[in-house]
Design a binder for these strands. Structure first.
Length: 565
RNA sequence: GCGCCUGUAGCUUAAUUGGAUAAAGCGUCGGCCUCCGGAGCCGAAAAGUGCAGGUUCGAGUCCUGCCAGGCGUACCA
């Protein structure tokens, strides 16, 4: 906790000829509890002072002001170790949480700043696949995390609602028009059309030309093409929203690529005028070989725009509309080069905010049995995974808690929570292999484990059967297990900050696992409700604080939590 | 070919951003409910961090080279 570190710095300062900020950066938390709560490694000081680290640590230990809140300050090898009084630690941490309540972990560091999070971004006319969960839930969690730090957040679903693929879909649709009635076309039909197209395109080479022609008609505003496109988009959106709803995900805007087609042409015109863009092989490009990148392609030789063009136009629009502090793209790492190019072009255009565009990339999701391919119809539907998980949750409830009242509601929370957590506990960076058995296992480091811990905490409070005391003597909470938990609880605000700074919700996820695990260890070993009234009161408020933090952490990750399960 | 990312117990991951004896989960084996919920807890076996060098008082973390996998590399997004 900050107050203890500040105190350490205050006491060290008179003994060292080093600025406070530097001392603070040296202070760290030892790997093991036996080595204290905080430590100052003296190795870096050794050079300056021209003394051996153990000697420095020894001298500091002898000279430093001892006394509360520290029980002891001692030298071990080259380290100066600080042991915070356990009672004082408990008072500081629980006092803070009691005061902040549900706002514990929040801050106002982002006040007055806007961050736009661009995430999920499915292509219309295709169902949401399991692979969409990474962008969707990472982006959603980032929204909540930034909001907790006081930022205004804009959740932006930049729909993939433009591109040659819609030409393909139209070709496929026209072929089978008589079999399909326009009003009732579903996303499932659209997927079939898409798969059919790619099957047929392998044999009929003219199909691709037809598709390009249809896409051109669309860009030129042809009424039939536009009409079809509108149906595709509306049907898809209806379907997406249904699933987002199950995931608890909300968007502030669904403005997709189609919104920026007109501006894209404008971008091309301006870039050509300024000389940044040139014509090459019939296309329009921005050469980037100076920066060791392939050129950024803005316009194809058939005169239609590209993804990059629309991204540039969209970025301009976003800055004009929101003057964002940051624009975060939660998009797969396949597109790393694409974003480097786009950001570079924005920089060359003279936008100082280009440096505030961030690609929060993430690794591939694959499954045992191959990679996802919508074209070949080889994909796992997100909804199938959710349904399966909920079904299993439901069966477990039936087995373990048959008298539970709202079984379906709870099964939904647990099943969906398991799927969400199973994905976002991984660091963004890593490729993830989806495996049904792992995803549907609710033991160990899983979402249900966190929910169970929360429910268990609630069970204790329910068992007490009296209103919680308003205050208690926290200095009684001094067991090893309580001390470990206090330290973790005290870390929570820092965890939230780090998750935001690194665009990494998994930091919150692993924190919650550690916290829950430590709680369950405590629970096994100690009783909360006992004959000792004073201790019972202190522990009840401690339990309540744990509940607050687990609930808050799950909330930041976008995972709902039942009161019983 | 070139560029980027990844490589830690059988499997999936962590390691306070360069610090003390590399930590968990799954799986395997063995224990724990007259006591606040066993979706839990405790213990055992199991890696010296892809390989080889280097920098450093100190390297899973930084640098170099190699190996393996993934992704990307001008008209898809």
């Amino acid at each position: 906790m900050k107050i203890f570190i500040d105190e350490i710095v205050r006491r060290l300062q008179p003994l060292l000829d080093v600025p406070a900020a530097e001392i603070e950066s040296l202070v760290q938390v030892p790997a093991e509890a036996a080595m204290g709560d905080y430590a100052l490694p003296c190795f870096q000081l050794a050079k300056k002072l021209r003394k051996a680290p153990p000697a420095i640590a020894g001298e500091l230990a002898a000279k430093i002001e001892q006394g509360p809140p520290f029980d002891t300050i001692e030298a071990v090898k080259g380290y100066l170790n600080f042991f915070v009084n356990r009672g004082k630690l408990a008072e500081a941490v629980l006092g803070r949480i009691l005061a902040d309540a549900d706002r514990y972990g929040e801050s106002d560091s982002g006040r007055g700043k806007t961050v736009i999070i661009d995430f999920s971004a499915p292509n219309i006319a295709k169902p949401l696949g399991l692979h969409h969960i990474r962008s969707t839930m990472t982006g959603h969690a980032l929204c909540r995390i930034f909001a907790a730090l006081g930022y205004r957040t804009v959740a932006w679903n930049y729909l993939g609602d433009w591109g040659t693929q819609f030409g393909q879909l139209m070709v496929s649709y026209k072929k089978r028009e008589h079999e399909l009635s326009r009003g009732e076309i579903t996303v499932k039909d659209l997927l079939d059309l898409y798969v059919q197209y790619h099957k047929e395109a392998e044999e009929e080479e003219t199909l691709d030309d037809e598709a390009r022609a249809w896409f051109r008609k669309l860009e030129e505003g042809d009424p039939e093409a536009a009409g079809l496109w509108r149906i595709f988009r509306e049907e898809s959106l209806k379907e997406f929203k249904r699933i987002y709803d199950r995931l608890g995900v909300h968007f502030d805007t669904y403005e997709g690529e189609s919104r920026f087609v007109k501006e894209s042409m404008e971008v091309i015109r301006r870039l050509l005028e300024s000389g940044l863009a040139v014509k090459s092989e019939g296309a329009v490009i921005v050469p980037l070989d100076q920066w060791k990148m392939p050129p950024c392609l803005l316009m194809k030789k058939d005169g239609t725009t590209l993804y990059a063009t629309r991204d540039i136009a969209a970025a301009e629009f976003r800055h004009a509309s929101y003057q964002f502090d940051r624009l975060v793209y939660v998009v797969g790492s396949q597109q790393k080069l694409h974003f480097r190019q786009v950001f570079k072009v924005l920089e060359l255009m003279g936008y100082d905010w280009a440096g505030r565009c961030i690609h929060a990339d993430f690794g591939m999701l694959s499954f045992t049995g191959g990679t996802f391919s919508t074209r070949r119809g080889k994909l796992i539907l997100l909804e199938d995974v959710l349904d399966k998980a909920v079904e299993i949750a439901r069966a477990i409830i039936e087995e373990k808690n048959p008298t539970l009242e709202n079984k379906d509601e709870v099964a939904e929370m647990v099943g969906v929570g398991a799927v969400i957590f199973g994905d976002i506990k991984h660091r963004r960076n890593k490729d993830v292999v989806f495996d049904w058995d792992t995803a549907l296992n609710f033991d160990g480091e899983t979402g249900p484990y966190l929910q169970y811990s929360y429910v268990r905490l609630g069970g204790i409070i329910r068992k007490y059967d009296e209103p919680l005391p308003a205050a208690a003597n926290f200095s009684l909470l001094t067991t090893d297990e309580e001390r470990a938990l206090m330290k973790m609880l005290g870390d929570f605000p820092e965890i939230v900050r780090r998750a935001a700074a690194q665009y990494e919700p998994s930091i919150v996820a692993s924190y919650l696992l550690d916290l829950s695990s430590a709680f369950n260890t405590f629970y096994q070993k100690h009783r909360v409700i006992s004959d000792d009234r004073e201790l019972t009161h202190a522990r009840l408020l401690f339990v309540s604080a744990l509940r607050t933090v687990i609930r808050k952490g799950l909330d930041l990750l976008g995972i709902r939590c039942p009161e019983r399960m």
